[in-house]
Simulated scan of single mutants.
Amino acid sequence: MSISSSSPGPAGAGQAARPVVLVPARLAATRLPRKPLADIGGVPMIVQVWRRAMEADIGPVLVAAAEEEIAEAVTRAGGQAVLTAPDHPSGSDRIHEAVSSFDPEGRFDVVVNVQGDLPTLDPAAIRAALRPLDDPAVDIATLAAVITREEEIANPNVVKAVAELPEGGDTGRALYFTRTAAPSGAGPYLHHIGLYAYRRAALARFVALPPAALERREKLEQLRALANGMRIDLALVDTVPLGVDTPADLERAREMLAGTGR
């Protein structure tokens, strides 16, 4: 897919952004081994995620694969994959290697990181992640949804985003991310969704930084960016996509996509 100057996305220096979508994937997973290749609707899960990213229609989509098996599954489905080193410490490092290999000239100036375990992701959410980058001061954009289930507030597996949002607004500046219930006082809690849109230079800077103390404490990689003065803004979306981490999640994803034609 080629990208023209009319492609959707944030403006910069008088030109529209040129996004590329990267989906990092590896076979090593403790709770659901080899999950990128798990069958959903007759195709591997990573192919379902690639399809959702293609449906967003914001730019080329590449799977950053740690293993040849993943790359082959994607190419058999008509997609494009870049084979990366298998031992990257994070998805951010993996997509940085992949985009550097795919686009060494820097033609694409925004890199959207879509996790490889989100087969039911709404493509509109991928497009929404570009909204905060309309502000040239923003380095990284991400997503959040208002928590509607009380049990999620105290659940440490649900990451909360603390953000300064204007009343009635759907984008705002992220001030912190935490596994605890925050902020205090009356008002909504925000469920952080781990989908990121990086300016190309911000991604390069981010992966070159050492882990931050709060990042290690909370086990949240995005705190490295905040600790080093990088600006993260978020866009609000209506729903949280299902992340497939367990066999039960996999069955639910199969049920959600059954009969949708996907």
Rank of each mutant, 00 (worst) to 15 (best):
P10G: 14
R231V: 14
G14K: 05
R94S: 10
L118R: 02
P247F: 06
M230R: 09
F177V: 14
H88Q: 07
L175T: 14
D57P: 03
M45P: 01
V159F: 08
L118I: 01
A125P: 00
T75G: 10
V74I: 09
T30L: 03
A154I: 14
N155T: 14
V207T: 10
H192M: 10
A98G: 01
R224N: 06
V111G: 08
V21K: 00
R200W: 10
A29R: 15
P19S: 13
A124H: 14
P183T: 02
A129R: 03
L121S: 01
S2L: 10
Q222G: 03
I147Q: 11
E72C: 06
Y189P: 03
L257E: 01
R76N: 12
G185F: 08
I3W: 09
E255G: 07
G78A: 08
D249E: 01
A137N: 07
I140D: 01
A65S: 08
N155K: 11
P10I: 09
I3A: 12
M230E: 02
V159N: 05
P33F: 03
A85C: 12
V43R: 12
L226M: 04
G185L: 11
A25I: 13
L190K: 12
H96L: 08
E167V: 15
T246G: 03
A77Y: 05
G243P: 07
R26F: 10
R224W: 05
I40F: 06
D117P: 00
